[in-house]
């Protein structure tokens, strides 16, 4: 633990005590290593990412280890989770033909969701996806699949041809080529990753600001009134973040499904 959280956790840092507000910042996203192996440092976000993977694997293993015709509680929950991804994310983009991608999308959705929701769990309280290094590998996997399926289903020439927007006059097309190339290979994957990272980063920062401000203002003075206000805002941000964690996982997976759909079935 570093930065403002550590300063506040020190205990004595309150308003009128001569201690300035320990404002959270980038330093609160940098963790001291739990252990090191040579130059490799194992930090809390890495531990949480592994934990998230184990939770997802463990839950679905427990749910479908011995599937029954009349499902038990865990199996029912697992089926509900899978059907939610299928009906709300996969089918709207890929239809029934896309059911073979269901395991990938379910894994992706729940892995991102669990990593996000760790922000709200006491003691863990850090969203893994607010470190962009954990987001880029997922974007890379999605984009690699997107390109691979495109080349596989449409062929190299067909795929490049289908990148050209339909019905655009030739002179306009020449102007659009640099825009299309940059969009396809740089900005589309960039926006996919940065949106998830940015939302989780900002959410965690807001939550930290209001939590630390509550502690900082908590004195037997007029500061107590502000502390109550700050606490109310912290609760509001907490509730908002419960929605954001789910929404960001949903958006990432939905966009993945639409990318797969456009590779498998060219729209033009």
């Amino acid at each position: 633990m570093t930065g403002a959280v550590a300063a506040a956790a020190g205990g004595g840092c309150h308003i009128f005590s001569g201690c300035g507000f320990p404002a959270p910042g980038l330093q609160d996203f940098i963790w001291k290593p739990i252990f090191t192996i040579g130059s490799f440092e194992f930090t809390k976000p890495m531990l949480l990412a592994i934990l998230a993977a184990l939770i997802v694997i463990g839950f679905f293993w427990a749910a479908f280890r011995k599937p029954r015709l009349i499902p038990g509680r865990t199996q029912s929950l697992g089926e509900m989770a899978i059907l939610a991804v299928r009906d709300q994310i996969l089918r709207p983009s890929l239809g029934r033909k896309g059911d073979s991608y269901l395991p990938f999308l379910v894994s992706l959705f729940f892995f991102i969701y669990v990593m996000n929701v760790m922000e709200l769990i006491p003691l863990l309280q850090f969203p893994v996806t607010s470190r962009i290094g954990f987001v880029w590998p997922m974007v890379f996997i999605v984009y690699f699949l997107y390109l691979y399926l495109g080349f596989k289903h449409q062929g190299a020439w067909g795929y490049l041809k289908n990148m050209i927007p339909p019905g655009v006059p030739a002179p306009v097309l020449i102007i659009l080529i640099p825009v299309e190339l940059l969009r396809f290979f740089v900005f589309q994957p960039f926006t996919l990753g940065v949106r998830l990272f940015g939302n989780m980063f900002a959410g965690h920062l807001l939550l930290t600001i209001f939590t630390i401000a509550t502690w900082y203002l908590l004195t037997l003075s007029v500061g107590l009134l502000y502390a109550v206000g700050s606490f109310a805002l912290a609760i509001f941000i907490f509730v908002l973040e419960t929605l954001v964690t789910l929404l960001q996982a949903f958006i990432f997976t939905t966009l993945t499904a639409t990318y797969i759909a456009s590779s498998v079935e060219p729209a033009h």
């Binding site: 709300q88 994310i89 983009s93 825009v179 900005f187 960039f190 926006t191 996919l192 939905t254």
Partner: peptide
């Protein structure tokens, strides 16, 4: 189903538009 489909369409088109605006400026 149609609600989910139009939501997916909206998301895709929305972010494609953002990508177009950024790539136009960058290119």
């Amino acid at each position: 189903s149609s609600e989910a489909r139009s939501r997916a369409q909206g998301l895709n088109i929305g972010w494609t538009v953002v990508s177009y605006l950024l790539s136009g400026m960058a290119a």
